[in-house]
């Protein structure tokens, strides 16, 4: 009788052990205190008229301040903006990275022109922007590298950690040709982000761009995203780009 009881209880003990081990592993990889920001998100509170009229929506961040560039860079930036405007007015827009179907890169991609997906996995938070299928990997709880050890790219080298309920991310290594709002920057640019849920379905990202060469002081602005519970990101391939830059750097369309 005792033997039979033992035989019956063995699988139960084994099952219980597996359950305990699995829940232990789950607790290790993702502590319960970390906010769940996995899923699809779209830009919240941007675009014309987003803040016009009605009582202020507290989940919409304030408008970005004017970036403070050092005089020589401010002049270059202003000249570039004015040249762009003059070219647009003539109907001959200047070619940009988009003309060649190149992705936004950092930090422009965090403006989420198209929906964005955040994935939390062990040791990494991955952010995918639908437009151009841009992917950035945030390595969690790893030390940041030195500028010299990171090759320049579109998304840079990102490390992150949870500071309570806030995901804090540090990014370096952005190519000088990858520009935010057409602003120049040096290889010493550093992008700091603080992502936090301000309501169950609205995530704020406070972005600070530091560049001791170009900026008088760090430029901080906040973008907000709202959850898209039923949305799956679509693919985006530059399959037939008919735009090109002509020999004068103007954006043209290939005629078929």
């Amino acid at each position: 009788m005792k033997t039979r009881q033992l035989v019956w209880s063995l699988p139960l003990v084994a099952l219980a052990a597996v359950v305990v081990m699995q829940s232990g592993a789950r607790a290790q990889s993702k502590p319960v205190s970390v906010p769940d920001i996995t899923g699809s998100w779209e830009r919240h509170g941007a675009g014309p008229g987003a803040r016009a009229g009605g009582p202020r929506d507290a989940t919409i961040p304030p408008p970005a301040p004017q970036p403070q560039l050092k005089p020589q860079y401010a002049k270059e930036w202003q000249d570039r903006i004015m040249a762009g405007r003059a070219a647009d007015a003539k109907g001959e827009p200047l070619a940009t990275n988009y003309t060649d179907c190149l992705p936004d890169g950092m930090p422009t991609m965090m403006g989420a022109m198209f929906p964005m997906e955040i994935l939390q996995s062990r040791g990494q938070v991955t952010i995918i922007e639908e437009a151009f299928t841009q992917v950035r990997r945030i390595l969690m709880d790893k030390p940041q590298k030195s500028f010299e050890d990171v090759e320049p790219g579109f998304y840079g080298h990102s490390v992150g950690r949870w500071d309570g309920d806030t995901l804090v991310v540090d990014t370096i290594g952005i190519k000088e040709t990858v520009r935010f709002q057409n602003m120049p920057h040096s290889p010493q640019m550093r992008i700091k982000e603080r992502m936090k849920l301000v309501s169950p379905n609205v995530l704020w990202n406070e972005i600070t761009i530091e560049d001791p060469v170009v900026f008088e002081k760090p430029h901080t602005y906040t973008v907000a995203y709202r959850r898209m519970p039923d949305y799956t990101l679509l693919e985006y391939i530059c399959e037939d780009n008919r735009e090109y830059a002509d020999d004068k750097g103007r954006q043209k369309i290939r005629i078929n």
Binding site: P93, Q251, I253
Partner: peptide
């Protein structure tokens, strides 16, 4: 507005 929502200039 274009910066917020479009990749390409429609000025052409």
């Amino acid at each position: 507005a274009a910066n917020a929502a479009a990749h390409h200039s429609f000025a052409v």
